[in-house]
């Protein structure tokens, strides 16, 4: 069932999305993107997906806004008029939509507990989590154990992004012309805005604290390595925004960040190698200890730490790469 609040939020999200496409000022578009992400996060929360909501809020509204702003400081703020003729695009889009409608018409997506998607595997996930892992957050159980291999892949995707950003605009990349604008928000910091600094400085410890809570409480409540990593990075990026990038770089130097990014993935993969050497399948945590339930929990905790370390390292590396670009 869809609640009226969901309907309302979804309509707002749609309008915001339209605003993103229409806005000529890219700064406005970025702000609208942030709002769009927050609205989607609220919808996910209402649809019983708090883990997804937390991630969407931290990543969509937080990290990607900072990335877009940093990139914009290096490129341009206004979208030029003209360009591609809209008619063919409209045609393609309309055909796509019509095809989906043909397929999905009269298929209520929401709520049916008897739908195959909810009857085939979901009950077994609950049952096995109860028997073999005894952790209350089944999302974490599926993420870290049943589909742990996907999650390893996800960590590698994030690492790939960091490799790509460093390769393209890192310190060793070819240097281009200097950035056009002097007001590099991401790089320079807001040192002259006292109220912002004070509010920010009060907020940062709480964000970091919350990050660690989310990391270590991920088996019990929404959260886990990914969300924690994103929050930790967000806290430090906020510090960088207030005090300047160099100050943030002094908190955790780039060399350490690189080691974190690679090390977290290696910890995750290392767990897999250890289980393999101990006679199990790759990432089969239950062989880690004599007691299978504790073994599963141990495996989950360790790989979640790996996820958190890699994600925070990667996001900060990316932030530094963008913020330092064009300032020599």
């Amino acid at each position: 069932m869809t609640s009226l609040l969901t309907v309302f939020l979804l309509v707002l999200a749609l309008i915001t999305a339209l605003g993103v496409v229409r806005a000529r000022n890219l700064f406005a578009a970025v702000m609208l993107m942030g709002i769009f992400s927050l609205l989607m996060a609220a919808v996910f929360l209402l649809l019983d997906a708090p883990d997804v909501a937390l991630t969407e809020a931290a990543v969509g509204a937080g990290i990607s806004t900072v990335l877009l702003l940093s990139a914009m400081a290096l490129t341009a703020e206004e979208e030029l008029a003209g360009g591609i003729h809209p008619t063919p695009a409209l045609a393609v889009v309309l055909v796509t939509a019509a095809v989906i409608f043909y397929g999905m018409f009269e298929k209520p997506l929401v709520g049916d507990p008897e739908a195959p998607v909810n009857t085939h595997l979901a009950p077994q996930f609950f049952e096995l989590t109860r028997e073999q892992m005894e952790i209350p957050n089944v999302v974490t159980a599926v993420l870290a154990s049943f589909r742990g291999y996907d999650t390893l892949g996800e960590v590698i995707v994030v690492l790939t992004a960091a490799i790509g950003v460093l390769f393209l605009i890192g310190p060793d990349a070819p240097q281009g012309s200097r950035a056009p604008s002097g007001g590099n928000l991401a790089g320079g910091g807001l040192k002259h805005h006292q109220p912002l600094r004070i509010v920010g400085k009060i907020a940062i410890p709480f964000i970091l604290l919350f990050a660690f809570y989310v990391q270590y409480h991920g088996e019990y409540s929404p959260g886990g390595g990914f969300q924690a990593g994103a929050l930790l990075a967000a806290g430090i990026i906020l510090f960088g925004l207030l005090e300047g990038r160099e100050a943030a770089a002094a908190v955790i130097p780039t060399r350490v960040l690189k080691a974190m990014a690679a090390g977290g993935a290696l910890v995750f993969g290392g767990v897999g190698v250890v289980t393999l050497l101990m006679g199990g399948q790759f990432l089969e945590y239950r062989v880690l200890l004599d007691h299978p339930v504790s073994a599963q929990q141990l495996g989950i905790v360790v790989i979640e730490v790996g996820v958190g370390v890699t994600v925070s390292g990667v996001l900060l590396l990316i932030y530094h790469a963008f913020a330092a670009r064009g300032r020599g």
Partner: peptide, 13 residues
Amino acid sequence: RYDMGGWAAPLGI
């Protein structure tokens, strides 16, 4: 065939 994480398909990968 190989069951990742020791979970038999279709539950695991």
